[in-house]
């Protein structure tokens, strides 16, 4: 088979849009995919130009590429085409200059339809924003409610006539509210972690362990915690973010929670 015929079949058989764009913005060739995706008929090909098939805000960018006298292939260009009826089609393309007698005569452009990918990205972004919004509301409003309950319980504790047993129960209540607050804070942190790069820093593993232990100890005021470790302060450093403390807190919290002993040694 003639290589030219093979090339022709490839260009006409593909679902990607292939065009040859003249310097004046008209087309010397458009393939079947372009006509199908933008809903034009063969009789309309001569009426097409950059001004008719590209979104108005994108036309300047495309004109700049096709008029630039360069041998360079320009790839990964995201742009927007419009169908005959005015619907947008997101595409990603590569532009290859075509020279004759040392002069650039046209630009061969190949575009891949990325509308579905774009829509998925937009849907995902919308869902993320919605989730973040709901988490923000939950964090804000529940923190206020917890603040009010804790302050009220603080008031009750100030009453010197209260029996010790009642004071103990109130303190347990405060501790549970603080636990709920930490849970909410963790949910918020997870939502932030999933969308942002971690803020890494050099951390002393002994200090992170100690901070986690202090937090875990506060969650169980009725228990004692003896932490035995051969890791000395200033001995080991790791590259981590602030969640390293949360990891130690969670490990120690689980140990304290599930130990049946009052005096827990870890």
């Amino acid at each position: 088979m003639d290589p030219m015929q093979i090339a022709w079949h490839l260009m006409e058989g593909t679902n990607d849009i292939i065009t040859s764009i003249n310097k004046d913005g008209t087309f010397s060739y458009v393939n079947r995919a372009l006509m199908e995706k933008l809903h034009y008929s063969e009789s309309e090909i001569d009426t097409l130009s950059i001004g008719t098939i590209f979104f108005p805000g994108e036309q300047k960018k495309i004109k700049a590429i096709v008029t630039k006298d360069t041998h360079e292939i320009i790839s990964d260009v995201q742009t927007i085409m419009v169908t005959k009826e005015g619907e947008m089609l997101h595409v990603e393309g590569a532009f290859s200059p075509f020279f004759e007698g040392g002069k650039k005569v046209s630009t061969i452009a190949l575009f891949r339809d990325i509308s579905k990918q774009k829509k998925m990205e937009e849907d995902l972004e919308r869902e993320r924003n919605q989730t973040e919004f709901l988490i923000d509301i939950m964090t804000h409003d529940l923190a206020n409610i917890h603040q009010e309950i804790i302050s009220m319980l603080d008031f009750l504790i100030l009453n010197e006539d209260l029996p010790n047993e009642t004071v103990g129960i109130i303190k347990e209540g405060i501790s549970e509210i603080e636990r709920a607050t930490r849970l909410i804070s963790s949910v918020r942190k997870i939502s932030i972690v999933s969308k942002a790069l971690p803020d890494l820093q050099c951390m002393d593993i002994s200090l992170a362990l100690l901070r986690g232990a202090i937090q875990a100890r506060l969650a169980f005021p009725e228990k004692t915690l003896k932490l035995v470790t051969d890791v000395e302060h200033g001995e080991y450093f790791v590259v981590a973010d602030e969640y390293l403390v949360d990891i130690f807190y969670s490990l120690l919290h689980n140990s304290l929670k599930h130990s049946k002993k009052k005096d827990v040694t870890i």
Partner: peptide, 17 residues
């Protein structure tokens, strides 16, 4: 300065203490 009205009442009480 807080958008939660209930929190105002609580803070007033706490500060009075």
């Amino acid at each position: 300065v807080d958008d939660d009205e209930s929190l105002h009442k609580v803070l007033v009480r706490v500060l009075k203490l």
